[in-house]
Amino acid sequence: MLQELAEKQARLLAAYCIHAQENETILIQGSTHALPVLEALHREILQRGARPLLKLEFPYQLAEFVNLASDAVLDALAPGAVQEMEGIAGSIRIDAPMPPRKGADPARMQRWGKTLNPLGEIRRQKKWCISLFPTEYAAQSAGMSFEDYQQFVLQAMFLDHADPVQKWGEVRERQTTLIERLSKASEIRILSENTDLTLNVKDRIWANSDGKRNMPSGEVFTGPIETSASGHIFYDLPTLYQGREVQGIHLTFEEGKVVQAHADVGNDVLQAALSTDPGARFLGEIGIGTNYGIQTPSKNILFDEKIGGTVHLAVGSSYPETGGLNKSTIHWDMICDLRSGGEILLDGEVFQRDGVFV
């Protein structure tokens, strides 16, 4: 099944997500553990008349680089890196989750993130997509056998359908109706047992995430007004951030800024991320998951933030197309599960209760 999944996934990424065109240069990045889909992508890009720029990484390469690099290397881009990024038409990144181990020093990781920021800004102005290829570890995290997890990924991307592009079109139409309601709202209030957070989204633009940038997808999102977040929120779904597990994140906001923060597991990672720069303590995104085909948390943000009945808020950089103004070298989506006793209110009216839109 793995090779079949790789071929179908590569076809969808090249034709639908990135829509590679003749003579375009498409950057392809991923771990050697994702080699089947990377090889298939390389072929698909070539067959569409485009030019693949393939960059492979071995497992834990980033941690090794950050820990061993000299200050001069850590704090400066390689010659020609900006020009290379400016020359691409789009990029595809394939994640291949691996077991956490002693990773990069969090403070040095944030320094490297600042160094890479100019490349990220250029990349975000072009076509881009992030996807995932199944690994044994990803299956274990999701509590599934490897075979079941492959089927889970296949179904999450609609690759089990004769026409996946048509299915993603249906997602886009369904989410359009949600955006019509959200666009009329000014205040959003999120409530659950350990959460009471209010923020303002007046005149901000809601984006329809239909698989073009994330595959799989299924969410609507915008950038809240930067100084509006007030209250507290508990992110109960565990995740991996920069190779480290982080669980039980508690954040308190005043005038949009995180003023108190604690994680039950991985608190040092959280504190380092929030100290990256001034924008790291403000929200860059609120997203509402709509993919009810994904219901099992897997410690992977790409999947978990799309779970129907969850909401995620990212500290750090905004997406400019939403009207968001916050700038930071980080963008960390944190996920709050509302499927049992949670609510989303729009200007005081219930929009979602217990994870179901009303």
Results as ranks from 00 to 15, higher is better:
Lys327Glu: 14
Ala107Cys: 07
Gln155Gly: 07
Ser31Asn: 02
His262Lys: 15
Ala314Arg: 02
Thr195Asn: 09
Glu147Met: 05
Ala63Met: 06
Gln150Val: 10
Asn291Leu: 07
Pro216Thr: 06
Glu136Met: 10
Ala104Tyr: 01
Ser91Met: 15
Asn300Trp: 00
Ala156Met: 04
Asn214Gln: 15
Glu254Val: 13
Ala261Arg: 07
Gln21Arg: 14
Leu197Pro: 00
Leu270Ile: 12
Ala185Glu: 09
Phe152Tyr: 14
Ile179Pro: 10
Leu240Ser: 13
Gln140Phe: 12
Gly284Asn: 04
Glu255Pro: 00
Leu274Ile: 06
Glu7Lys: 08
Cys336Ile: 06
Gly248Thr: 07
Ser328Asp: 02
Gly243Ile: 03
Ala6Val: 11
Ser318Lys: 00
Asp163Asn: 03
Ile28Ser: 11
Arg101Lys: 15
Arg204Asp: 03
Ile122Pro: 00
His262Ser: 04
Ser217Gln: 04
Glu245Cys: 04
Gly348Trp: 12
Ile190Ala: 10
Ser209Asp: 04
Ala76Leu: 08
Val165Ile: 15
Cys17Asp: 08
Ala76His: 10
Gln140Ser: 15
Val66Lys: 02
Leu159Asp: 02
Glu44Cys: 13
Pro238Ser: 09
Gly324Glu: 04
Asn291Cys: 03
Gln3Val: 11
Ala207Thr: 05
Asp160Met: 07
Ser70Ala: 02
Ile179Ala: 04
Gln352Thr: 01
His19Trp: 10
Gly231Asp: 09
Arg244Asn: 07
Cys17Gly: 05
Ser145Cys: 06
Asp337Phe: 05
Leu27Thr: 10
Glu170Tyr: 07
Val82Gly: 03
Ala272Gly: 08
Ile301Gln: 04
Arg48Gln: 13
Gly90Lys: 02
Lys327Ile: 02
Asn117Asp: 14
Gly49Glu: 10
Lys55Arg: 14
Tyr292Val: 11
Ala314Leu: 07
Ala142Asn: 08
Gln175Ile: 00
Ala69Asn: 05
Gly355Asp: 08
Leu313Trp: 07
Ile330Ser: 01
Glu321Cys: 06
Thr198Met: 12
Ile307Gly: 01
Gly309Val: 08
Gly103Ala: 12
Ser91Gly: 15
Val37Glu: 03
Ser318Arg: 03
Glu39Gln: 13
Asn326Cys: 06
Leu116Arg: 12
Asp105Ile: 06
Arg189Pro: 01
Ile205Val: 15
Asp354Glu: 14
Gln271Ile: 10
Asn117Leu: 09
Lys102Glu: 15
Thr115Glu: 05
Ile94Val: 15
Leu346Gly: 11
